[in-house]
Design a binder for these strands. Structure first.
Lengths: 211, 211
DNA sequence: TGTACATCAGTGAACGCGCGTTCACTGATGTAC
DNA sequence: TGTACATCAGTGAACGCGCGTTCACTGATGTAC
């Protein structure tokens, strides 16, 4: 072979990663094969040495983006003590930084809508990852609400996603920052009203304006 | 003229309406001129007697969808006594029916993401309508929270949107219905915890499973 | 160790197709006389 | 009231362009002898 054994796998991975960023930024129709291959330092013809079709790649890009999101949450959860995990996830989710970087951000908020118009196979995989995200979030809920953790996770996720999408729609001005701040408070509302030992901190200590 | 004065305006309105439905269903890239004109009973060439370009139409379709959403909320608010308005809006928003009919549903949840990739002009108009939606929702908040009505409206809207999008992503099975039910509860959480005279009703009396 | 052959990731021209846009034309109706 | 002309929404062929896909070819490297 012309290249080492790992070379092909690396090239393929690079294409998938680039595709997953563009996918989040511009949607499935915004992912063009020529541009993608150019980004990877190759020409368009070589694409079919790695993927059967464009749809094939789109499916991989969806999966990659979701796995990245799940991994990021898992990692973040490991880094802080259990009672701060949910707060940590929510507060890092609803930031100007995350809002302004769709391409490297949460796949769920960037792709949920697009996932409805995609190959059945890709869509099914997407829903599986969604369920996994709910499960990961549920694991971070305080023990006191372990019975309702699943439902609380869904509620929290909905508020996080909704706020992030609204904030992105609003741009990056005061209104958008307000949405982020309100979202942080709302997403953590149920946790804070819990009869746990209060953290005593103000809810959001983000750079954005306080709520 | 070949046709009556109103004829052209009617044809144009029909095209915009069809486009706004398709826009919500399939996104901007899913709106093709030929298909659209066929739906209106015309041929593609006639399109340019009504619009300067495809982008022009897309802009109008965005605006139309948003105005429709705002109008629907205003109308629904008028139909019920003031203390039930928010509940009425939320409960009719997070239903299987609304989930399954994207084309005729809330423009905000269907188009927020797409709005980021559109003409600056169209996008600006979209954000204006978003602010109007927040204002309408704020008007439906209980008087007791009039001071925070704006922020509560943002929080409620985020949860509503997030839950609807998640439910749509999940399909139309048990998991999806659960998301709707949890969303209804979460969106109304702040209102229900208010020291107003409790309505005494269970939060959700929807066909979907109870929370 | 050196030589001939096989492999296959990557190249770049070419093809087909769909789609937005243009344009010469149509023909029913309003208007002018 | 009747006739000639102007208007313009709508028609459908044609055009250009971008994009996904195909394909004959390349050439560096692994393998067989």
């Amino acid at each position: 072979m012309r290249y080492s054994k790992e070379h092909k796998a690396e090239t393929r991975a690079r294409i998938v990663k680039n595709a997953s960023i563009r996918l989040r930024e511009r949607g499935p129709d915004g992912v063009g094969i020529s541009d993608l291959m150019k980004d990877a330092g190759l020409t368009h013809g070589g694409f079919y040495a790695h993927f059967r079709s464009r749809d094939d790649l789109i499916g991989e890009a969806f999966a990659h983006a979701m796995e990245e999101a799940i991994g990021r949450w898992r990692k973040k959860a490991e880094q802080v003590p259990s009672e701060q995990r949910l707060v940590s996830i929510v507060n890092s989710y609803l930031t100007p930084h995350h809002r302004d970087d769709v391409g490297n951000g949460c796949a769920l908020s960037a792709l949920s809508m697009e996932a409805m118009r995609v190959t059945p196979r890709t869509r099914k995989a997407f829903v599986s990852k969604l369920e996994e995200m709910v499960a990961v979030l549920a694991e971070q809920m305080p023990e006191s609400m372990s019975k309702t953790a699943h439902k609380e996770a869904i509620a929290t996720l909905a508020t996080m996603m909704g706020a992030l999408i609204l904030a992105r729609t609003a741009g990056n001005g005061d209104f958008s920052n307000e949405i982020l701040a309100v979202g942080r408070d709302a997403a953590l509302r149920s946790v804070k009203s819990q009869p746990s030992k209060g953290t005593g901190k103000r809810s959001s200590r983000m750079p954005a304006r306080s709520v």
